[in-house]
Amino acid sequence: MKDALVIADRSYSSRLLVGTGKYRDFAETRAAVEASGAQIVTVAIRRTNIGQNRNEPSLLDALPPSRFTYLPNTAGCYTAADAVRTLRLARELLDGHELVKLEVLGDPHTLYPNMPETLAAAQTLVKEGFKVMVYCSDDPIQSQMLEAIGCVAVMPLASLIGSGMGILNPWNLQLILEKVKVPVLVDAGVGTASDAAIAMELGCDGVLMNTAIAAARDPVLMATAMRKAVEAGREAFLAGRMPKKLYSAAPSSPTEGKIAPKAA
């Protein structure tokens, strides 16, 4: 596969990972995921409704695990213990599936990651054989710590979850990209296509998003836009951009052979 994204020894042609929350129904979820071209989709683990779900459609029917790589998350967990417990349940639910997204939140208002708890959970999960993709603050030192623990990808926020504020600190992302050898994916904060393109142009290995697609007026069209933006940003990164200059004394058209100026 040309220019594949490799996570835990598996190759993916798409560098866009998408969440499956906040959609109107499973039909819309599926249409948006298809349009995004994503191969990895995040899911949450929640209590089942007892006694009222006999013929209720399930997410696993809408997005068959045979076609998509599921990435169970720990959304809503505020302690390492809860996150670990959730992912053990996810592994049982998905028949031994090991690739997971760890996120331990610090507070319900900002959803900013709690890094001490995140590091503790990562340690336990890696020991138990999980392949951990980890949502984290955009701190290069803690990103390196997560890599040292054995996480298979680090996923710093671009801005707060669900904020759509875009890439607030490209400099920190660059520091992380310089320091960390495992894939670095921007997770959270992307609002529109240009944000995704900027993340990829910086050299990020991928982008994970949910709200930017699900909360768009037309989620399926936005999913298409995001697919293109991630591809365009990746290609621009690989192509190597021209240096920025305040002005240029080198126009793009020849300076020779111009017609004679009209006599005054």
Binding site: G21, V43, A44, Y70, P72
Partner: peptide, 10 residues
Amino acid sequence: FEIVVAVGGG
């Protein structure tokens, strides 16, 4: 008992 399923999430 806790009995869980996979649901949409980000």
